[in-house]
Design a protein around this nucleic acid. Sequence first.
DNA 1: CCTTTCCTTGACACGGTGTAAAGTTGACAT
DNA 2: ATGTCAACTTTACACCGTGTCAAGGAAAGG
Lengths: 199, 199
Amino acid sequence: MSSEKIETREKILNAALKQLEAGHAASVRMSDIAKQAGISRQALYLHFPARVELLIATARYLDEVKDIDARLAKSRTAATGVERLGAFIEAWGNYIPEIYGVGQAFLAMKDTDEAAAVAWEDRMQAVRHGCNAAVKALKADGALSRDHSIKQATDILWTMLSVRNWEQLTGACGWSQRRYIETTKLLAARILLNDDICK
Amino acid sequence: MSSEKIETREKILNAALKQLEAGHAASVRMSDIAKQAGISRQALYLHFPARVELLIATARYLDEVKDIDARLAKSRTAATGVERLGAFIEAWGNYIPEIYGVGQAFLAMKDTDEAAAVAWEDRMQAVRHGCNAAVKALKADGALSRDHSIKQATDILWTMLSVRNWEQLTGACGWSQRRYIETTKLLAARILLNDDICK
DNA sequence: CCTTTCCTTGACACGGTGTAAAGTTGACAT
DNA sequence: ATGTCAACTTTACACCGTGTCAAGGAAAGG
């Protein structure tokens, strides 16, 4: 039956995960994954039409295994806004190293492969929405005093969460390059020059 | 004489710049650059031993053309620390989009190519030193009140400057992955929870 | 005119992705 | 036990990118 097929599929996904975690993620080859899974390279193409599809499936598989959704849910159900924010930062902070390898691979392909670019943008959407939700929760507690502080705090949280690893995972953030740079410069100046970020 | 050779070399470097700026930087091919320069693909190898060396040379050429050093010097010679900080942020903020394409290419190669990894790390060193210098200048003006605020401000400035574009340019930041994540989480929490970042 | 330098064309090795064809293995039904 | 079907194997190959090699052409300078 198809149960064996599914078993092999999971064997492949686990092999891909192990190879991606082993480092040099962007350069993991189909033959590496096949060897890790103990099957022939051609068999990979019986389960996935192309390398990029295998990687996308691997990312989804990782989400399931690590139960990212459940962890993020905590950041929506905690009692106070401050607790919710803490849970949110914790969840994403732990997510980042787990998904790092897969993200590296997407990043390397996004210029040349449409599917990789789409997968990347999907994840970007998720973190943007997560950021907005966390800041709204904080606002509900009165921890931020004014509306335009909410906007600034969103920008800061977004910036913080999109540095290095997460950014390498997801890449283009939906903003234009110019807008991102201007915002970043403005925030750095405001924080260091003691502007009204702090209520 | 060798003047023609130098001319051709610059023709190649300008062609590489144009192709890198045109987008999809990581996937720019040798044949693309050759076509842009109006010469044969093989001729590129008469001037540069390999693709990665051509890209490294292109990055250096860009530094010269845009006179990055001079712009950064302003951030060291301005009258007050606050002015120096502003000049510093301005210089780096403008540098980022200029060097973006080349950085994308380095990022794509850093896993598989030793030379690309080294070039990347070199630029990382430069921005780290720049950050430290800017914050020292700010401290000299008394704009930051306590020593451990200096440390925090360094972290923030560093974080701000290393988001998205610059980070894609330079990648691994010398810190361990774990350290970077912990710092980022801590900073996000402190800023949003109104800790003592503001003096 | 001959030499040297720079560049050209054409061919090819190598390594990666993805495809195609034919053979093997094992489970399961009759 | 035999036939059948599905999953997987092996071998081969097309395609594309980097990098190398060999032979030849064009122009400058003695």
